[in-house]
Write a protein that binds this DNA or RNA. Structure first.
Length: 731
DNA sequence: CCAATAAGTGTTTTT
DNA sequence: CACTTATTGG
């Protein structure tokens, strides 16, 4: 047994309070960087070590797999051993319980979990059969509506009587969708929570046994819970109230996915005698970054309000750069990164670039490879969403659940074996629709003899695989699957190297999985994958700059952060609409992004951005204007001339670097006739200058490469001379 | 039934 | 631009 954990010396007063508090519900309001995860992990340790609570009776719920992974590791490290505490995401908790207790809830425990792609496919099919024009009624829209209904614990019938939607078609689509899922024994993400809740409602004994098991429940990122998740928690913790939730209303960024901020705001009304503890000391960011972000979030209403403070130094001002184009923006960021790396002692991995939407990552990828910056995209194109990976997994899923029509359709003709859509239709009609697994093939199959032969040989090979699927060591099984299915040869035939590599990658993943879980069947691997949508190329993460969406950035921190695309329409995103609540969510997203930065924060924008084929000119994000201007250094690249539409030629400005480091030399920096730096080199206090956007002003102060200028309209701003097209005023 | 080609289209964030 | 869907010809 390890020696006692010195809670007092590892935690500040508020944290210690939160960790040791016992006896009634606890709400910890944890500001950004205030040690939230620390509190949860120490609390788990405390419950086990000091309160002598059996680890089996503790459930800690998170939202992302990443968070639960990290928490698991930290708890194990703290306690010095692998602990039996359940630390899982909401969805994986639900999936696990449903598999174990399915029978008590009237659920076939071998259900298959489908992702949004599958969901969309099913809806598309349904809508086609209903003869709905897919242009006016988009499957994505209905998918989202169905998700939202499930978040609110509404079945199709309940949604209808509650007038959940004004679109009468929706209820029919939802009903039919659900009918299919249950017929094929498929669960979407929403079902996992929904069915768990319903199961507990319908079976009091089951409810009691689950409550008995999970007597102490901790919830991380509580501000992100939706209605269904909150109800689930309530069912499990009423009336004993051994519930500890941690969250920050200012970091609620999943409203679009059904999260309800009110859950955290009203928590203490739902649970009597709730103890509220605020964590307000920020251990992450320099003063300037913290002040600027606090100032921004102050614009939001309906908050508890916190006063974050840090003992760190002031730090540097936030740099804002407005490039002429999206490529110019990427080039600026790349320049800064090289500078940080080679002149300022930062590693590539100390730096992250955040953006609002995945589509923005492309420019960075291209510019970064040109300039030799190693990068790694977190959660963009997802490994397990790739076609070839989904195909292989579909084979396994079909073997595990032979009613799974989605998977059947996916792989029936991959590799091409002469089983086209019509033939699959017939196959489905004669089996799955009649309530039989698809392996069961008889005379009911109405196709030509030649087709029938092909189907039979396909089914035969699947039956062979099915016989060994549960008993074979997963990596070995996958190998057999590659061979018998002919999939690997099929891929080799297409000559797509990358896909073949991905298949190898999948094999490695299975091997790794089996090493970690020696006795687990392959179906468990599929389960893990289904729930872990986000696993991209994180294995290779050493010494690479990160490219991440703002949503994915939550919970992370970096010494240097760039937030790109600070433009109206991008961030805040134009689809976020006019509503105050939506704008507030965008603002929180900005707050989350800014508070990830420890030492340096850069905000960048592009005047003209090429997105989805066309170039559009955009103004600067309103969030930028909401920040305290005295904490920001502004600079702007001279606008590009556009000769004709679509042409955005090279627009290299003269970026100055103080180093002659090797890898910098290869970068080509074309000269341009108007060399600004020299023009402004003799600036001094009281010089008169002209800025192309802000007009005439007087230099108040110059220090290094930064000049403070008071414009004639009274506005005071700071500029980086290297990047700003300032001219001397000749008047 | 299949592959190649043309046309069209819709653009956030994710468990 | 990138992706899906419809059409065509084999």
């Amino acid at each position: 047994m390890a020696q006692r954990i010195p809670y007092e010396s590892h935690l500040n007063a508020a944290q210690l309070d939160a960790v040791t508090y016992y006896g009634s519900p606890l709400l910890v309001l944890a500001g950004a960087g205030s040690g939230k995860t620390r509190v949860i992990t120490y609390k788990i340790a405390y419950l086990i070590n000091e309160m002598s609570i059996d680890p089996k009776n503790i459930l800690a719920v998170t939202f992302t797999n990443k968070a639960s992974e990290e928490m698991k590791q930290r708890v194990d490290a703290l306690l010095g051993e692998k602990v039996e505490v359940w630390i899982r995401t909401f969805h994986s908790t639900a999936a696990r319980v449903l598999r174990i207790m399915g029978d008590a809830f009237g659920i076939q425990p071998r259900f298959t979990i489908i992702d949004q792609q599958d969901q969309k496919m099913i809806l598309r099919k349904i809508m086609k059969e209903m003869n709905l024009d897919q242009d006016t009624y988009k499957p994505e829209k209905y998918a989202a509506l169905i998700d939202r209904a499930k978040d609110r614990l509404l079945s199709a019938e309940e949604a209808e009587s509650e007038r959940f939607s004004t679109d009468p078609l929706f209820f029919d689509i939802y009903r039919e969708y659900q009918r299919r899922l249950s017929h094929e024994n498929l669960f979407d993400f929403g079902d996992l929570i929904f069915r768990f809740c319903r199961g507990l409602d319908s079976n009091g004994d089951a409810l009691n046994s689950v409550k008995q098991r999970f007597r102490y429940i901790l919830v991380d990122e509580f501000q992100d819970t939706n209605h269904a998740q909150y109800e689930l928690i309530k069912k499990l913790t009423f009336p004993d109230g051994n519930i500890y939730v941690v969250g920050d209303e200012d970091q609620s960024i999943y409203g679009f996915r059904g999260a309800v901020v009110e859950n955290i705001m009203n928590f203490s009304k739902e649970y009597a005698y709730t103890k509220i503890i605020k964590l307000e000391e920020n251990y992450r960011s320099f003063q300037t970054i913290l002040s600027a972000s606090s100032h921004l979030i102050d614009k939001n209403s309906g908050r508890f309000g916190k006063t974050l403070f840090t003992r760190k130094g002031k730090g540097e001002k936030i740099v804002f750069f407005r490039a002429a184009s999206d490529r110019g923006e990427a080039r600026f960021i790349a320049d800064r990164i090289l500078n940080l790396r080679y002149n300022e002692g930062y590693g590539f991995a100390d730096i992250a670039v955040f953006y609002r939407m995945n589509a923005q990552s492309r420019v960075f990828e291209s510019v970064f490879s040109e300039m030799g910056i190693p990068y790694s995209i977190v959660g963009g194109f997802r490994f397990y969403e790739r076609e070839e990976i989904k195909d292989i997994l579909a084979y396994v899923r079909l073997l595990v659940n032979p009613y799974d029509e989605v998977s059947l359709r996916r792989i029936a003709n991959k590799p091409i074996r002469g089983i086209g859509e019509k033939t699959v239709d017939a196959l489905v009609r004669s089996t799955i629709e009649c309530g039989r697994p698809f392996f069961h093939i008889d005379n009911g199959l109405e196709v030509s003899l030649a087709r029938k032969k092909k189907v039979e040989s396909f089914v035969e090979s699947m039956v062979k695989l099915k016989e060994i699927v549960d008993s074979t060591y997963p990596p070995e099984f996958i190998r057999t699957l590659f061979e018998t299915s002919g999939y690997l040869d099929y891929l080799k035939g297409t000559g797509n190297e990358e896909r073949i590599r991905n298949i190898d990658e999948l094999y490695n993943a299975v091997e790794e999985f089996s090493k970690q879980n020696p006795s687990a069947p392959i179906s468990e691997f599929v389960e893990e994958v289904s729930l872990n949508q986000n696993n991209s190329d994180e294995r290779f993460k050493q010494e690479r700059t990160y490219l991440i969406t703002l949503h994915n950035a939550k919970g992370l921190e970096f010494p240097v952060v760039f937030i790109a695309g600070m433009e109206e329409g991008i961030f805040p995103h134009y689809l976020a609409g006019e509503q105050v609540s939506e704008l507030q969510e965008e603002r929180r997203l900005c707050y989350v992004g800014m508070t990830r930065a420890m030492e340096k924060l850069y905000l960048t924008a592009a005047r003209v951005r090429k997105l989805y084929g066309t170039s559009v000119e955009r103004g600067v994000s309103k969030f930028l204007l909401e920040l305290p201007q005295e904490l920001i250094v502004f600079s702007e690249e001279e606008p590009e001339q556009r000769f004709f539409s679509g042409f955005t030629g090279p627009s290299f400005r003269r970026y100055r670097f103080s180093s002659g480091s090797g890898s910098l030399k290869q970068r080509k920096i074309p000269e341009r006739s108007s060399a600004r730096p020299s023009e402004i080199s003799d600036l001094k206090a009281s010089s008169r200058v002209v800025h192309p956007q802000f007009g005439r002003g007087t230099v108040v102060e110059i220090s290094g490469e930064v000049a403070v200028i008071r414009f004639d309209d009274g506005k005071k701003m700071m500029f980086m001379l290297n990047y700003t097209p300032l001219r001397k005023d000749e008047e």
